[in-house]
Design a binder for these strands. Structure first.
Lengths: 230, 230, 230, 230
DNA sequence: AATGAATGAGGGTTCATTCAT
DNA sequence: TATGAATGAACCCTCATTCAT
């Protein structure tokens, strides 16, 4: 946790440190990130970093906390805008489009997300992932439950399996377009910028087929998506 | 790529280097692994490593190549034993059980797999993942195609989406039981040793529902699996 | 020397600083002690320490002054209780027993004493030892002179040599039971808790033989002590 | 223990490192000594020190080992020259004169001895003192036993107490003339260069009175010394 | 072909002290 | 008077790589 000194800090100095640290950790992760570099880029004495944070790990935790909260805030706002009461897989498609677009437009958040996923230091990775996973689940679980209540999911749908898959698919969709070799099948990491939109639909089609109710009134979307690939 | 000197090297010296390097990279990843340590453990001069490999990265690539090839060889043998001509999702269940068991029994391969997944160094990670993905696909794609040909998959099944999901699920199943916080939903990282078996069935049930043919003769397995959770 | 600000300070704040500084210097000595830690433990701003004392060295000198004065006060009270008019070496034996017991019961004073003895910083060590030595001599010299006047010492006894030896023996007796390797001959640093008592008697026997009057009326004790070792 | 690299090292580089390290540790002790400074003064890369020694502690142990062995070698040679079969306290007087003179002439050995005595780091101090004490005892104990055998000591003399006192007196004699405030009684730390010679005789007189045989044939020396102080 | 000594930048962290508020 | 943020040098140690032998 940041020190009280940090909480009392002027906005300019604060954001200089945050900016420098985000950039550095995004680029090299926790283990690879250098406090020397962060201090230099922030125009701050190296010792000052230790006035604000207990140690490197503390700074890293703060940076990733702030970052993942920022993403969550954005997504919750978007969820509200996207009318989550619509048929679930239709809504999910739009949601994932927004998700993909967000990371396309925010390279630093993307890099931060990637860095946390690929961190070598077990403790650092575990604690960061715990936070990120909590955010994911606190947002997604209510949506999924509501969908089941509405009848958009099969009565016997394995909801936890659905959440588990979303927890793999969402980082994949966010990062794969920017990491060579990460998606060797669906071609997310190719140049064509419309790819992600197609891939979203293909994944949603799978989820819809697996978890969606057979109620015909909801199948329109799914069938359309089923034809999206070729 | 290893140098010609390496190719001319006696088997004993070779395996000493490979053993030491595998152990070190498994324990600390590429960035964290130390050539000093590897040379010492292998009983080889530090400089010799640079006679055999261009640099650290080159050695790392070689080690992961060897390791992933070893896993592939094992899996191909097992696939043959498991009679891949059976109904696909029944076979897939057994295959994933074997997969999970392999990594449970081979901590070094598991650690190597994990290290490559969590590598911070982007280039190192990308090049290793490319190799690993190639292995996965060269093994899985024929199986999936055969399944479709046999009619185990729906005619319109999105085969690439299936492969893409398997490429996420298989590392997840291999590593999650040993990496705290990696699976916050299905509880793979809990103590109970029968968990992975259940989780395999839940995932297969999903895949079966999404991609499986509606041919009633194949549904037995799926339905049973559908009841496994709850 | 403490500043005037310090002299005007409320008792509570004063003792908070003294307590924290004593604990820290006792634990880590002058060079190793940290002003950061002292300020934090005392609940006082780091800057305040510099309002009260010129610098670290000044604070350290003050703390050791206070500590050695405390020990001296205790010992002077005990000397009075022990009836210093008795035959000198009998009295000295009891005095050293009390001395040893005091440091056994007061780990902080012991640690402070040890820290000052083992201080690497020459100036810090010298100035502290000067104070400590002054205390020792102001207390011991009158006792020794009185003993000679009474005839407990040989007329030609080299009184300064006796004092010089006491100045070595007393710290040794106080610290050796708690500092491994400090006494490789007499085994003061062994577990048996009766050791110090025996060692005191062996040293006093030596001093008695060297400095004691040959007056038979005083030899009882000495002879008994001479037999204490085996 | 130094590495094999160190043992294979050319004499010039070796002595550059030894010289620099001795000077630094003599000046600031183990805790206070800086590897940066040692490397710079030796004209050697910082990293090279770690090719020669496992860590700072290892280097320190080596330096103090070499230093204390050097002093012991010198003293053993001198002991042989001084005819140790003479009456013990006469011999001891000469021995201590030589001892005092050695440290007067070898400021670096003196500083090293002092630094080891005053080391704050408990482990470092303990291990160094153990070596030094062993040297002292291996040299002194045979001399003392021979003296008793010859009848120079009282039959009931507490030999361990004698050794214990010598272990305090010898460092004191070596260092006190150069450390202000170390000897506030006998004035060893005064300018007059003949002081140490007198102090040696006063201490020997005490030891002779305490431990010496009453055999009149041996008292000549003692009595003469007894008159040395005034 | 094999060696292993030498390099020196860089790692995170602590520290006593200053000084504007 | 009290504060505590800011400083930046210094700490020990590790590292991949080079190159003369």
């Amino acid at each position: 946790m940041p020190t009280v000194t940090w909480s009392r800090l002027g906005g300019e100095r604060r954001s200089a440190v945050v900016d420098a640290a985000e950039a550095e950790f995004a680029a090299h992760g926790f283990s690879g990130g250098s406090l020397n570099v962060i201090a230099r880029r922030a125009g701050v004495a190296k010792g000052s970093l230790f006035q604000y944070f207990a140690d490197k790990r503390d700074l890293y935790a703060y940076i990733t906390d702030v970052g993942s909260q920022r993403v969550r805030d954005y997504m919750e706002y978007q969820i509200h805008e996207l009318e989550p009461d619509r048929p679930f897989f239709e809504f999910l498609t739009d949601l994932l489009d927004v998700w993909v677009a967000y990371f396309a437009d925010h390279p630093r958040d993307r890099a931060l997300h990637a860095a946390s996923s690929f961190e070598v230091d077990t403790d650092a990775r575990v604690s960061v992932r715990a936070v990120v996973h909590r955010h994911y689940l606190e947002v997604l679980r209510p949506l999924v439950h509501a969908a089941r209540t509405r009848g958009d999911l099969r009565p016997d749908a394995d909801i936890d399996a659905l959440l588990s898959l979303l927890l793999m698919l969402m980082p994949h969709l966010a990062l794969a377009p920017y990491v060579r070799g990460m998606d060797p099948v669906l071609g997310l990491d190719e140049l064509s910028s419309e790819q992600p939109i197609l891939v979203v639909r293909r994944y949603v089609a799978v989820l819809s087929a697996a978890f969606g109710s057979t109620n015909p009134s909801h199948r329109t979307t799914t069938i359309a998506q089923g034809e999206a690939h070729g």
